[in-house]
Design a protein around this nucleic acid. Structure first.
Length: 313
DNA sequence: TGAATTTGACCGAT
DNA sequence: ATCGGTCAAATTCA
């Protein structure tokens, strides 16, 4: 998986990163059951360790991108990127006229060649992700179409980057709910073209680190694991550091990840050592904190997901 | 009232 | 002819 695209160079750094991640994985694995008893203090400690490890891993991975730079994966929220597909290769016949014959109903349509022309540039690529939260991947999308696809029970929704017009970003994706009756439902998300805008920023909430959008190739479990941890703590970020919530309500519904928690954390902006210095809470305080944090269950779930993701290391 | 979404037509590929 | 992807008018929403 992740190792498949890692270069042999800088092997020691990679080993260090793997060891770091593996260590945290073991710790989370062992202490996972205790989370339900010790609530946020332990969870935050583990999360801080996990995020630190992931940050190290990400740094190494960033340096070890394979030379035939694959498509940039958006910060996927949970789940697994399955494979990189062959690029869609829109044929751009530059001067084809293809005058659309206007119908009585709609005098529209221009030659598609002018549209496809832009897609025929260097960044054309696609990859597939399976996720339970297809609408939350850290980028801002605008829906532009929906289709019933043959052999599927659900319609497929088409999205393009919100900044297509502003920044000429050609990133698109389509979301297809799988037929399986799993709960929560699984969606296949197919991304086309990497983002060329600078608006899809992935912010590391605990470390206050920003990763530039074109960072990682597909199959980066660390990013997925990180992203899985990212959401429950969004509300802990001060407003100035939060991403603008651009997701329309209708798009948020399927993932049902509504969190209105007022979790307090002293680790939000701290450096790597913050997890060693948790404020000491007595049991009553911890219980109260847990009560006041509806997002805690979600956090616990995400920690489990993180554990699963780490298995692949 | 402007922005976002919906929806059916259009278009290229097969 | 059919299918998947996109366009853009119509509609909905904030």
């Amino acid at each position: 998986m992740a190792a498949a695209w890692c270069m042999p160079a800088a092997a020691d750094e990679r080993e260090r990163a793997v060891a770091e991640v593996a260590q945290v994985y073991e710790r989370i694995k062992i202490q996972q059951p205790l989370l339900q008893v010790h609530h946020q203090q332990l969870a935050q400690s583990l999360l801080s360790d996990a995020l630190r490890a992931l940050n190290v891993a990400l740094s190494v991975m960033k340096q070890q991108r394979p030379s035939p730079a694959p498509a940039t994966t958006p910060p996927v929220t949970s789940s697994v990127v399955v494979k990189a597909e062959s690029p869609r290769s829109p044929s751009a016949s530059a001067d084809s006229e293809a005058i659309a014959t206007p119908t009585e109903r709609r005098p529209k349509k221009r030659s598609r060649s002018s549209v496809m022309e832009g897609n025929n540039k260097t960044s054309s690529s696609s990859w597939v992700d399976f996720t339970t939260v297809p609408y939350e991947d850290g980028y801002e999308w605008r829906k532009y179409g929906e289709k019933k696809i043959n052999g599927t029970s659900y319609t497929r929704s088409y999205f393009r980057c919100t900044y297509k017009d502003d920044a000429g970003c050609l990133a698109t994706k389509h979301v297809q709910q799988k037929d399986s009756s799993s709960d929560p439902p699984v969606f296949q998300v197919t991304y086309n073209n990497k983002h060329t805008c600078n608006n899809g920023k992935l912010i590391l909430p605990f470390m206050n680190i920003k990763l530039e959008p074109p960072v990682l190739p597909p199959n980066t479990l660390a990013v997925q694991a990180y992203s899985a941890l990212h959401d429950p703590f969004d509300q802990t970020m001060p407003p100035s550091q939060q991403e603008p919530s651009s997701l329309p309500v209708s798009m948020q519904q399927p993932c049902g990840a509504a969190t209105s928690s007022t979790t307090t954390s002293s680790c939000i902006s701290g450096a790597e050592s913050c997890c060693d210095e948790f404020p000491v809470l007595d049991m009553a305080q911890m219980a109260a904190a847990a009560e006041a944090s509806p997002g805690y269950d979600l956090l616990y779930e995400e920690l489990s997901l993180l554990c699963d993701s780490f298995k692949f290391y």
